[in-house]
């Protein structure tokens, strides 16, 4: 199975050409920004920027579409469960009011606040997925390691990240191979023909060889790395890291500004909490 998402060779679009440092720093700051903002006014610009970024990367839309459908479905399911747990959750987030639109029973109702809260939540998840897609599609494992190293992560941890990233397509390939060889031995794995309990059992059966082959490979990889002198020095430089270009400088101004903005936003929210926990236009 060829993984359509993770790329190992640097691409040639505007975002691809940024250094790993810029990509990782921008991504980390955007993460802080997404987590802190439960606010449509903050999320919307990022959502638009995410779409522009994604289009500019010229990805394979066919596979991406599949991922987006899965993500949307999973998040919708989550939201329905959220609503079932506490149909009144919007009242807590939107400052105390409760406008019931439809009520099924006394405890189960749809209020405008809950609807607003849940749709913002959904929007937030989609935005964060969009940003991580742009990040994953634009970065290579070595750039990831280099970028993490530039934010003072110890380089052994950076290596863990980059090897893990590099290894994900291999897991997919191994899984396919094991599945095919199991089917060749007569194990039925078609979801339509096998009940759920059997499928769990068969997944475990695939898991054992998958884990064993993966950990068997540890020796080979680590020997190869040792032979090339990995882990001798206290610091490390990265071959994939090139000189900063003009685009990197533009991004630097952008992410520094965003960092300052996020810091001010978080501090101001702690010092003087707003009346409602999220921006709600209908109150």
């Amino acid at each position: 199975m060829k993984s359509p998402l993770l790329n190992l060779i640097p691409g040639d679009t505007y975002i691809h050409k940024l250094t790993g440092k810029t990509k990782v720093r921008t991504f980390v700051i955007l993460l802080i920004y997404i987590i802190m903002s439960f606010d449509l006014r903050l999320l919307l610009p990022l959502f638009i920027a995410g779409i522009i970024g994604l289009v500019s990367l010229r990805p394979e839309w066919k596979t991406l579409r599949y991922f987006f459908i899965v993500v949307a479905a999973v998040n919708l399911l989550n939201i329905v469960l959220f609503w079932l747990v506490n149909p009144d959750i919007g009242t807590f987030w939107c400052g105390g009011s409760r406008t019931v639109l439809i009520s099924f029973t006394k405890k189960l109702f749809i209020s405008l606040e809950t609807l607003w809260y849940l749709s913002i939540r959904f929007f937030k998840m989609i935005t964060s997925f969009l940003i991580s897609m742009v990040f994953i599609l634009s970065i290579t494992p070595s750039e990831l390691a280099a970028g993490l190293y530039s934010i003072k992560v110890p380089y052994k941890i950076c290596t863990i990240f980059s090897i893990a990233f590099r290894y994900i397509p291999d897991i997919g390939r191994d899984y396919e191979n094991i599945k095919i060889s199991m089917q060749a031995r007569g194990v039925e794995l078609d979801p339509k023909k096998v009940p759920l309990i059997d499928r769990i059992k068969q997944n475990v059966l695939i898991l054992v060889p998958l884990i064993i082959t993966s950990f068997d490979r540890v020796g080979n990889i680590s020997n190869a790395m040792d032979l090339r002198g990995y882990g001798r020095g206290k610091t490390r430089t990265y071959y994939s890291e090139h000189e900063e270009g003009r685009a990197d400088k533009i991004f630097k101004v952008f992410y520094m500004g965003l960092l300052v903005f996020s810091a001010i936003w978080i501090v101001s929210r702690i010092i003087s909490p707003p009346p409602s926990k999220m921006w709600y236009p209908f109150s």
Binding site: I160, I163, Y167, F215, I221
Partner: peptide, 9 residues
């Protein structure tokens, strides 16, 4: 390092 990485993946 390699084992942790593969484990994480």
């Amino acid at each position: 390092v390699v084992a942790v990485a593969i484990g994480a993946a």
